[in-house]
Every structure is written in structure tokens, then in C-alpha cells.
Computed example of a mutant assay.
Amino acid sequence: MPLIDSTAAGTGRVAIVTGASRGIGRAVAERLAADGLAVVVDYARDASAAEETVTAITAAGGTAIAVQADVADDDAVAALFGRAQEEYGGVDVVVNSAGRLALSPIADLDLNVLDAMHRTNIRGTFVVAREAARRLRAGGSFVGLSTSVVGTQLPSYGAYAASKGAVEAMTLILARELRGRDITVNTVAPGPTATDLFLDGKTDEQVETLAKAPPLERLGTPEDIARVVAFLVGPEGHWINGQILRANGGMV
């Protein structure tokens, strides 16, 4: 498995962040590293982008390695967690940021696109959550990523919202299944956030309309979402468990 090494870690807390080569995942990885966690940067294909994340973390004085793993591949995910165990001694935080987005009216959606999106968004979340449930240490946290479109229900987002609705459905169930282990499980559901995934294929007019939707009248940033995740996995957020947190600037 391709591996990009950096500075060796100490004995502090350890995080795995999937989809951490870009967008929200990268912002989360950098924020958790700034908070003192050693971070395993998971990526699916873009090794150079993952290396950029690791370089940014280490240049700021943090600790990180990058490991390639398709989140829907259970053997690869087990190896990802195994590498975190081998390198840093265990896992305390798992943030599953890896995801796919495809927009289409339901009547027109290519079912191959549907299957690929659901493989990453539903199966991938389940595989990562399952491994987290087996491996997280006491005091740890699992955070999934959904979307506020589950609530706003905009046209053309039907398949995507359905896949993220599945993520939300798992959240409280997993929190209850981990009773007695001092592990929290939450999901963050961003609103319109200025990432490549969000901006791809949208006109300037569409972006402007979505930016005006929240009462704060702007797009979110990956750093906005990273701050929410950092709170949930830190000591101040440890009483929050089994929740869906809609980080969207006030959208319905």
C-alpha cells in the first residue's frame, strides 16, 4: 500500500481522516493536527494531493502520514487502521470525510452513477464506522459527514441526499451500540461549502443563489466545518453523542 511518511509521532491522540487529500477532509486533518493529534491522511487516488496535506501539517509542526485506502474496501480499511496502530499505537478519532457527489433529476440518473456514489457514501461509511467501532480507544470519537440537503431537499440532489440520509440513520444506532465504551458518534451535515466537490459543474449564478440561502449570506468554508469537527472530537464536545449537527449558517 502506498505510504507517504513524515515525522514520527509521540504518545498523544491519533486521528484517521478519510478523504483528507482535499476539501473538508484536508481542513479537518490540518485542524486536528494543529490541536496536537497525529493524523493518518487517507486518500483514494491522488497521492500528490495527500502529500500536500502531509507537508502542510508537518510544516506547521504537526505529525502525519498518508495512506491510500478506498473506504468501501474492507480489507484496505482494515489495513489503514492497522497502519495507524503500527505507526502511532492506536486510534482515538475517526472522521469519515470521503464522499462522492452526483447531481441529476431522479428520472434521468444513470444507475451506474448511483451505484458508484452509494458504494462510497453508504458502504464506505459503514465499512469505516465498523472498523472504528472495533478499534477506537476509550474516550474516542467517530464523526461522519452528511449534507444539509437531507433537510433542504433541493431538486437534483435526490440520490446524494438518499446516500447521506443513510449516514444519518446509522449515527444514533452506532452511538447506542457503543454504550459503556466512552466513545461518541456524531454526524456533521454541512450546508453549501466552497469545495471543489461542491463548486464543480455549477454556474456562477447557481453558486451565488446558494451562497445567499443561509441567513449569514455566504458559502461555508472547509475551515468552518473543521472547527465543528474539532469541537465534537475534543473534550468540550464529548457530552454530545448520537447527534446530527447541521453546520450550514442557518438554513432550514
Score class of each variant (00 low, 15 high):
Leu232Met: 05
Glu131Thr: 15
Ile240Met: 11
Leu245Arg: 09
Gly165Arg: 00
Leu216Glu: 11
Ile57Leu: 08
Ala138Asn: 01
Phe126Trp: 15
Asp92Val: 04
Gly82Ile: 08
Ala79Tyr: 03
Leu37Val: 11
Ser97Ile: 11
Ile240Ala: 11
Thr53Asn: 04
Ala29His: 09
Met251Pro: 06
Leu219Gly: 07
Arg218Pro: 10
Asn112Arg: 15
Ile183Gln: 06
Val188Pro: 03
Ala175Val: 09
Gly151Gln: 15
Ala230Ile: 05
Pro235Cys: 12
Gly144Trp: 02
Asn186Lys: 04
Asn248Arg: 11
Val167Leu: 03
Arg176Gly: 11
Ala69Tyr: 01
Leu216His: 12
Arg130Gly: 12
Gly165Phe: 00
Thr120Tyr: 06
Val93His: 03
Gly201Thr: 02
Phe231Lys: 13
Gly25Lys: 00
Leu245Asn: 00
Arg179Ser: 09
Ala69Asn: 03
Ala38Lys: 05
Val67Ala: 11
Ala29Phe: 07
His118Glu: 12
Tyr160Glu: 06
Leu109Glu: 12
Asp108Thr: 09
Met251Ala: 01
Thr221Cys: 04
Phe81Tyr: 08
Ile244Phe: 04
Asp5Pro: 02
Thr18Trp: 01
Lys202Trp: 08
Arg100Gln: 14
Ala98Gly: 05
Arg119Ala: 09
Ala211Asp: 08
Tyr160Trp: 03
Leu80Met: 10
Thr58Phe: 00
Leu174Gly: 03
Lys202Gln: 10
Val149Ala: 13
Ala49Asp: 06
Thr53Ala: 06
Asp70Ser: 03
Ala49Ser: 09
Leu37Phe: 14
Glu208Tyr: 01
Ile4Pro: 00
Leu210Cys: 04
Ala213Val: 10
Ile4Cys: 04
Ala8Phe: 09
Gly165Ala: 00
Ser6Met: 08
Arg45Pro: 10
Gly62Trp: 02
Arg83Val: 13
Ala33Thr: 10
Val71Lys: 07
Ala59Gly: 14
Ala9Cys: 15
Gln243Asn: 12
Gly62Ser: 05
Val113Thr: 14
Arg134Gly: 13
Val40Gly: 09
Leu136Lys: 07
Val95His: 07
Thr171Lys: 03
Glu52Tyr: 02
Val95Asp: 07
Ile16Arg: 07
Pro105His: 02
Ala49Asn: 05
Pro190His: 06
Leu219Met: 14
Val77Ile: 15
Ile16Leu: 11
Glu205Gln: 13
Asp75Lys: 11
Arg135Thr: 15
Val28Ala: 08
Gly10Gln: 12
Asn186Trp: 03
Val14Pro: 02
Ala166Trp: 02
Pro190Glu: 06
Val252Thr: 14
Val252Met: 12
Ala102Ile: 08
Ile225Cys: 08
Thr221Gln: 07
Gln68His: 07
Arg227Ser: 15
Leu216Ile: 14
Arg134Tyr: 13
Arg179Ala: 13
Ser156Arg: 13
Asp75Glu: 15
Val94Asn: 00
Ser141Leu: 03
Ala20Val: 06
Ser21Thr: 03
Ala15Asp: 13
Leu154Gly: 04
Leu109Cys: 10
